[in-house]
Amino acid sequence: MRPAKIPTEELMTSGHLACQGCGATQAMRFALKALGPKTALVIPACCWSVIDGPFPHSSLKVPIFHTAFEAAASTASGLKAGLEMRGDTETVVMAWAGDGGTFDIGIQALSGAAERNEDMIYCCYDNEAYMNTGIQRSSATPAGAWTTTTPIKHYKKRPKKKIIDIMAAHSIPYIATASVAYPLDLIEKFKKAREIKGTRFIHVFAPCPTGWKLAPELSVSMARQAVTSKIFPLMEVTDNGRRWSVWKDFEPTPLQDYIKAQGRFRHLTDEEIEGIGRETERNWQELLMKERISLELPGLESE
């Protein structure tokens, strides 16, 4: 066999219940390929609690603990403690939550677990709204987007919550963003996270064709353009929240292309899109500034 681009072991099977072109399933498939079979998942209410399949079936070949919306991080903390008591130090525990369960409902438990530096991976797969309940806004929904709770007349005005800043403020050993459009990078980051002890937070951008009013075939393309238009930068924060590094080695694409391809932004005027563009550029510059400052800080551990 020719060498494969990504690991060939499949821990997610066909037959799952995700919509056509679902980014969240790609994210899960890649993450599990990186982490391997010795992984235990904790999934709060989110798309994935549906995608996996109805009881007593599961489309994943690793154990999943379904838990309440707000409880992903605390359940994962307990699961890890229980495994350790039984002498299992090999299994990695991963909380796998959507943006609603991370940015909004689960943030208290997440903040608590991160502050205690619980030994787990917390992955937020971000499709930028409460998708499985019918596309309600979350604090991860970007400014300008339509959702059923931010209809066109009152589309979302507030910007997306800066979850990476929040997590960096918890001084945890590893934070990263990843995108389903860059599977090699995503897999590398999960592999890296697996080897680190303490709370590792990975934010995965996972397009939702259904909720974004997007043709399903464009889902990976949108994930890619989110990165190349700088609206979702790929980065890592290491050294307990101090060292920022941003991926810049890409050919930029116009933000317009990204916005205009998606039905959830269709109501926006060109001026409004320009406004989003200015905001995106400021965030990007701010991020680069953080990276520079983090490099100049004295006493930094080298990577």
């Binding site: 099977t13 066909s14 996996d52 007593p56 079936h57 599961s58």
Partner: peptide, 18 residues
């Protein structure tokens, strides 16, 4: 089962019909 635990996979669900 006594505990709510999955015992089978989803490959009976032929999503090709979608």
């Amino acid at each position: 089962p006594i505990r709510a635990m999955s015992v089978a996979d989803m490959t009976w669900n032929l999503t090709g019909s979608w």
